[in-house]
């Protein structure tokens, strides 16, 4: 994923940078799940569902950002202290076994959920709508992680 994921001089990341990071995270996650679904057709339904959920998360977060950006600006929306680097790692190639795939997927979901919770927590001070949607995205990712137990 693109983005240095931290502002120079430690200044708060802009809303634009954070939202693009999240959109890219969801897009990359969805693509990875589709690749998994192709590699493990016996679990395709579950993996496609995960892919759809990631895609929906991405759309929802982006939509919310665009629809509330005026409130955000007018109440000084800032992600002070946010460092996205720990959340930037994505699973690479499709694993060879379902067991490896499950471990990688659960790790991805937990990382994504933690990312959403981190961002939501740092934006909760002055604004309600965006953190609420981010929390929902985190919950969705945690649900994904639970359902991935069925992979094996």
């Amino acid at each position: 994923m693109d983005a240095e994921q931290r502002s120079p001089g430690g200044a708060p990341l802009t809303a634009s940078a954070v939202m693009r990071f999240l959109a890219e995270l969801e897009q990359a996650s969805a693509e990875w799940y589709r690749a998994l679904a192709a590699a493990f057709p016996e679990k395709s339904a579950l993996l496609q569902r995960c892919a759809s959920l990631c895609a929906r998360n991405g759309v929802q977060v982006q939509r919310t950002y665009q629809e509330t950006i005026t409130d955000a600006l007018e109440t000084n929306f800032a992600f002070e202290g946010l460092d996205l680097r720990p959340y930037g790692e994505l699973p690479g190639a499709v694993p060879g076994t379902l067991g490896e795939a499950q471990r990688a997927a659960v790790a991805l979901e937990e990382r994504a959920a933690a990312c959403y919770e981190d961002v939501a927590g740092r934006s909760a001070r002055l604004l309600a709508t965006i953190p609420r949607v981010l929390q929902r995205a985190a919950e969705a990712r945690r649900r994904n992680a639970s359902s991935l137990a069925l992979l094996q």
Binding site: T14, S16, Q66, I69, T70, A72, L73, E74
Partner: peptide, 15 residues
């Protein structure tokens, strides 16, 4: 203006 500010302006206009 910054892109966040511009998007805010676009939203206000659409409203």
């Amino acid at each position: 203006k910054t892109i966040d500010e511009s998007r805010g302006e676009t939203r206000r206009g659409i409203e």
